[in-house]
Design a protein around this nucleic acid. Structure first.
Lengths: 194, 194, 194, 194
DNA sequence: TATGAATGAGAGTTCATTCAT
DNA sequence: AATGAATGAACTCTCATTCAT
């Protein structure tokens, strides 16, 4: 990577980072492009070399974070482990990603259901989780997990982690290791076969 | 209620209703007051007889819907029933409120975590759910529900219902009675004592 | 004067009084009719029974105060006194009216040169000072006052009193009897014949 | 001065000039920013690159004109002249500035006593007249001018010039050289020692 | 590639005035 | 005569985007 390109990457990343910080604090419409530019140390016009519009910038941010989150989720998956152990590992991967990246979490939650992010972009981002979806479907097939619509199951599991993380990050309610264990066990019980 | 008062109520309600519809579709900042006024069939200035600002209007809408949702949740609670039956009834009450009031659901989810709704307003609205929180704490005490932090449990249960509703309302994935049963059973298993 | 009429007068006067107080403090455009109504304890619409518009209300206020000021100026004129004594008495009359009615003074100064008060209204109000203008013209004819254009002289004398009053009322610079004497003597010297 | 800077200066000056013209004719609140922009040949938003708000624009205009007026007042002061000659020169300097810049005069009078210009700004602008205030205090000390409070004297002298100018500029009463002499002599007599 | 002054449409809000009661 | 809810035009100001440099 030559210096030119590095600078470009740096600048684009700086813009996205500035946008993330400001939007989490003030919301999409409370964050003028001029402020994003200032926080990223670039000129206002420069942002438009990297993004077509404010909306595209947000879309890119969303997609970038979704990918980052997907990578975190799948990190260090060890297929030689027990099914349940792998399940617990996935849970913790995601939970740790959220609690260690609170701004990213808040942003993703803020825009997951907002009309600002187009449906097609949301669907595009499913790809980052496919391995886990397959893992769940396998669990059902193997009789380790109960008979349940796999889309429903995915939603419920994701919702479980989100709820736990939100408790800590939005409601300032510290999740101790003990509480995390309660959450994760509850989660397992909600899908394991009887 | 005399005619005067009816008109006032009608007008305020018309504004809130227009706001709900437009905001769900276009978001808070995608919804100019001029359009709210037009949709509610009032003059732009009229809104400001009922609300100090756009923000206060949104706060009122949020509070109104939270109360409505609280009422739906507690509807027809029959203390003579089994604990589990009452638990299932609560689950269904909330789920039905969401699926039968999709705009209200989307709005509440959109603003639950947004910086637009002040924290104090959110806390004020906890009061509508107190009876259910007590119901859960009782269940734990009686050994029907497992030992779990009650705030965590509340969050997980709420998250479970939200996730199921969202599947249908946001992702257009029809929740059949069969799927609803899967969700509700999963939910019960996630908190019942072993 | 029957009770009905008294009430009317009271209400009109209350409106003018409220307008005076609010406008002096916040200016014409910083004073909405709704606030005038509230301060006067009448409904907004009621003002429009007494005045055609906000502008007419201000015009009436201006004219009313100009007349009041004219009356104060001419109060207790004693034609048996020395010319100089009468001159001093006029000066003091006006000065005392201003310092004892600071709101009225500020209002009159604020609107004396404003485009809000039409020129015709200003000219109409000259009539209240005619006797003093004649008094000055006589003084010139008698050789007590110097040869000077009488309009110029009137302006200079009025300006002298205004400047002294403003020092106290606008710049919070207390005008002691000693200072008042300096001002009045200076004023006399500026027009007396040599 | 390079071209860039010239343009900037031009644009800011154009805005101030447009504001001056319109405000003198229609008052502060009768002058929407949109009209200022149109008259200055800039976009509405452009004004807000140079001024934070309409109020700051007015403050700047006021301060600019006060400085200009101060410079005019002190122009060509020749300390080798007689005290009385210098006094007459100051009077004429100010009078000529007013009559040759009628818009500036009307604006300054309109806002000198208005609640729109903050007291602190008014006090800031005293600095432009300090040399003349010292000149007057010296005159008193030397016995050329009478014993009089110097603040009172300053006010009276300023009031004298203002009154004369207003006669011409507001009341359309032409001040001939003869009348100007009457005014200036009257002014001198009002402060000279006996 | 990068800049940032300039744009102007459109936002939230105010308020003089009206009119049904 | 008196009310005050309702009106809607007009206001100040913001900000995503452009473009000459």
């Amino acid at each position: 990577m030559n210096i030119q390109l590095m600078k470009v990457v740096d600048k684009k990343a700086a813009v996205l980072n500035a946008a993330l910080e400001l939007i989490v604090e003030n919301g999409f419409h409370g964050t003028p492009m001029s402020k994003v530019a200032k926080q990223a140390n670039v000129a206002a016009g420069t942002i438009y070399h990297y993004f077509e519009s404010k909306e595209e910038m947000i879309d890119t941010l969303y997609t970038t974070l979704k990918e980052e989150m997907g990578n975190a989720l799948l990190r260090d998956d060890d297929t030689s482990l027990d099914y349940k152990e792998r399940f617990y590992a996935f849970w913790q991967n995601l939970f740790l990603y959220f609690t260690q990246n609170p701004k990213e979490f808040v942003f993703l939650e803020q825009y997951a259901n907002s009309p600002l992010i187009s449906k097609s972009i949301k669907e595009d981002n499913v790809k980052h989780y496919l391995p886990v979806i397959q893992f769940l479907e396998e669990g059902i097939k193997l009789g380790i997990l109960r008979e349940m619509d796999s889309k429903l199951m995915t939603s419920l599991l994701y919702g479980n982690i989100i709820s736990t993380a939100k408790l800590q990050l939005v409601e300032d309610y510290q999740i101790s290791p003990e509480l995390m264990n309660q959450a994760i066990n509850s989660c397992w019980d909600s899908v394991k076969a009887n």
